[in-house]
Write a protein that binds this DNA or RNA. Structure first.
Length: 124
DNA sequence: CTGATGACTATAG
DNA sequence: CCTATAGCCATCA
């Protein structure tokens, strides 16, 4: 298999990034997940910050839907007015996710994985 | 090595 | 709504 977009930078020791990126990639379009939720899902409870670090490491042009990851409580993590904040709002809106004042209605859009999805745990 | 920083979160006042 | 605190840990200066 040739290199695909989203390949891990060499030198990283079996980074947690791959696991996190895979979990983020599993978020369905039109829905969102929280940093903490993703962390828990990949077996890293209370490591919400790691998810942020991992997404920061994401190569430009990656197909990983980073915009579907938001803070607990439905807030966009980027400062309002920043380019990233605008881009995230734009991408979410394009998927039908309503973003008001940098906030998302979690009752409506928070992703609750089905039992099937929970059972389908990729191994390392 | 140390200390600050940050795409976090929960709790308390 | 806000600030403060504590827990968390890779990354950077």
């Amino acid at each position: 298999m040739a290199n695909h977009p989203g390949a891990v930078p060499r030198g990283t020791k079996r980074t947690y990034c791959q696991r996190i990126w895979r979990a983020v990639a599993a978020i369905p379009p039109g829905q969102v997940a929280t940093y903490g939720g993703i962390a828990e899902r990949v077996g890293l409870p209370r490591r919400a910050r790691l998810v942020g670090h991992a997404l920061r490491q994401l190569p430009a042009g990656s197909s990983v839907p980073w915009h579907r990851v938001i803070r607990a409580g439905g807030r966009i993590a980027f400062p309002p007015g920043s380019d990233s904040h605008r881009e995230q709002c734009r991408r979410l809106a394009a998927e039908g996710v309503l973003v008001l004042n940098g906030r998302v209605d979690m009752d409506r859009y928070d992703w609750q994985p089905s039992l099937d999805e929970l059972l389908w745990k990729p191994r390392d």
